[in-house]
Design a protein around this nucleic acid. Structure first.
Lengths: 198, 198
DNA sequence: ACCTGAACACCGTTCAAGT
DNA sequence: ACCTGAACACCGTTCAAGT
């Protein structure tokens, strides 16, 4: 019955029609080249360079990705997917506290994967409309579940929120990024934070 | 005897000759206008704007301050001085742990005073030659003393360094800056960190 | 000695013209 | 429908000419 409500059809997103062959190819080349450039120069790599190296006009880049966040998003989507899978595995694990700790470690590692990503994540968290924030939303919810479980089991304080934890993990990733000569900084800061969770 | 070693005279910095009157005036106007602009637009405010508002050519700005860090440094020197004074008071305080906690709070507040400052401090900490790092050196040493005292009194773990703490406080200030709608974030994150110090 | 501002190099973004 | 690249706006930095 409810499934037959007419509004459904207007609310449902239009079927994503397949891209024209050349558009599809350009799209993929851009994402690939952006991944290379981000890895090499950080996430503030020149967009013009990326377009040129992908053998495409700068306008084409903007047609596919209206802003830098959208491009970053496309680049990080793979990593995001596997993180989400891992999150769901952890949600089913026995020890709630250990699961949360592992999840936080994975988040820090992710944020530190590309130079500039941690900073972008922190800035993006301000507005909910940013594609970067949108795509991290499911991950945030998975983390919220892990945190709640750990709190209910009594192993983590009640007065911390998932947003506090995410801000802190991003901050730790950023700090580590600024001190590349100290590879254990991340671990030390994370351990410090975890102790504070009680 | 040792006071009479001739090398002394060559090592001593040359007496800072007084600036020409117009140069002095331009210098002061630039610093004043930079403070205004940094407060309004963050520390990445346009240098050209600052020069124009100070009624000075852009070349004059560069003559006085070879790079943005140097200008920021001049702007923040006052705050730095009072922080250093406060640090020395705290070093003489009775309770070593409370002193350290207060100091860290003051540091976070300082780093959050201007939008962009926390980030600049984190980036600058990479190279010891940056004027921003140079000027924070005495402050770092004061903090190291406070930390050592707290550790010797047994109230703080031995396996944390002053650099870890500074990275973390800068990171917390940065996180707070990105969430202006949550004025208590700084306090919560700082408390969390402090608990981790044991 | 110090100041000025035109000139240069660079980057992000838009949009009219082309296929 | 999609692509191209010239054009625009902006910013940091330098340097020859001026006082």
């Amino acid at each position: 019955m409810t499934g037959a409500i007419p509004m459904e059809t207007s609310t449902a997103r239009p079927a994503a029609r397949p891209m024209r062959a050349d558009a599809r190819r350009n799209h993929d080349r851009l994402v690939g080249e952006a991944r290379r450039s981000f890895a090499e120069h950080g996430t503030d790599a020149s967009l013009e360079d990326i377009a040129r190296r992908a053998g495409v006009g700068i306008g084409t880049l903007y047609r596919h990705f209206p802003n830098r966040d959208a491009l970053m998003n496309a680049v990080f989507q793979d990593a995001l997917c596997s993180l989400l899978t891992r999150s769901r595995e952890l949600a089913a694990a026995e020890a709630p506290c250990r699961a949360l700790v592992e999840w936080l470690g994975a988040i820090v590692t992710h944020a530190g994967e590309y130079r500039g990503l941690a900073h972008a994540l922190m800035s993006a968290s301000r507005d909910a409309t940013s594609p970067l924030t949108q795509c991290h939303q499911p991950l945030r919810e998975a983390g919220a579940g892990l945190l709640r479980r750990a709190q209910e089991s009594g192993s983590v304080r009640d007065d911390v929120s998932i947003d506090d934890l995410l801000q802190l993990t991003n901050a730790i990733a950023l700090a580590a990024e600024q001190s590349p000569d100290d590879p254990e900084l991340t671990d030390r800061l994370l351990r410090l934070t975890l102790r504070g969770l009680k």
